[in-house]
């Protein structure tokens, strides 16, 4: 199962990376004499209401969603690791402060916070900047979960017999951290990364549906899903006649499903 998920994810990533060759314009070119066309040899997934190639937009969207969601997850995990390790290693006011910040962040309705922060971005920023800011916000807001897990992991690891022995022999704290603690925490961090990446993929899709994600004319799976809105309103029959509109949803389900399958069920340091 895990092999199949890894292969699928690899294929999706390769397809995303090939977007630059298959659709150098990022699916932004409007073929105004070919609006709302069904799939054909020229347009494998048809065209949208502006005559843009849906297949090209799907690939360009995949590149954005599949590269930037993991990047945001990496940022969140790195931040969480630094804060979690600091809170785990230290005792006293710093540990309390970091722990309280963590609790507060976890208690916040982060999606609304994300919406508010996203809406504060000036309206005239270039689409690539808004894209980076969106994913950076996701990364910056997602640190609390990993930090809490890492802090618990640090506490557990520090109580392990071999670490206690090392500390009793007077090993330097930096050596304990880099040689022993971080390798012990690595599977935990990898697990956090694999758990967060699909969450961020879905968060971008949610933002896209609300019109606050990646801005036009760039494509992302989030803003491509927006097209489903009007078809869904027309009823299930319309959806059956326009099955190709489900492609971004399929991409999203396959990639998030694969990431969840790859994430370890239980990670103990």
């Amino acid at each position: 199962m895990k092999v199949a998920a890894a292969v699928l994810l690899l294929l999706l990533s390769l397809a995303a990376l090939s977007a630059s060759w298959i659709a150098p314009d990022g699916g932004q070119m409007q073929f105004r004499d070919h609006i709302n066309e069904p799939p054909s040899s020229q347009f494998p997934l048809g065209t949208d209401p502006l005559g843009r190639d849906r297949f090209a937009r799907l690939l360009s969207g995949a590149r954005i969603s599949l590269l930037l969601a993991p990047a945001a997850a990496l940022l969140a995990v790195l931040l969480g690791a630094v804060i979690g390790i600091a809170a785990g290693l230290r005792s006293g006011w710093l540990a309390h402060l970091l722990s309280a910040a963590c609790d507060l962040t976890l208690a916040l309705p982060w999606f609304f916070l994300l919406l508010t922060l996203r809406a504060l971005i000036p309206i005239d920023v270039a689409p690539p900047v808004s894209l980076l800011v969106t994913f950076a916000l996701l990364g910056l807001l997602g640190w609390a979960g990993p930090a809490r897990v890492v802090q618990a992991g640090v506490h557990l690891t520090l109580r392990a017999p071999h670490i206690l022995a090392l500390r009793a022999r007077g090993a330097a704290p930096l050596r304990v951290l880099t040689r022993h603690l971080l390798p012990e925490l690595a599977p935990l961090l990898a697990g956090q990364f694999l758990a967060l990446a699909p969450v961020f993929l879905l968060a971008e899709a949610n933002l896209g549906l609300l019109g606050l994600g990646v801005s036009e004319p760039m494509a992302s799976w989030g803003n491509l899903l927006k097209e489903l809105e009007s078809v869904a309103v027309a009823g299930p029959a319309a959806l059956l006649h326009s099955w190709w509109l489900l492609a971004p949803l399929a991409g999203l389900l396959l990639s998030t499903g694969s990431l969840f399958i790859l994430a370890p069920r239980e990670v103990t340091p």
Binding site: Q30, S215, P217
Partner: peptide, 26 residues
């Protein structure tokens, strides 16, 4: 939707004369 689409089309039309237009629906 009509205005958002018009804005996207104007974006491409202006790109033909080298103007970069950023569409900001509010």
């Amino acid at each position: 939707k009509s205005r958002e689409r018009m804005a996207a089309m104007i974006q491409q039309d202006l790109a033909a004369i080298g103007i970069q237009l950023r569409v900001a629906p509010l």
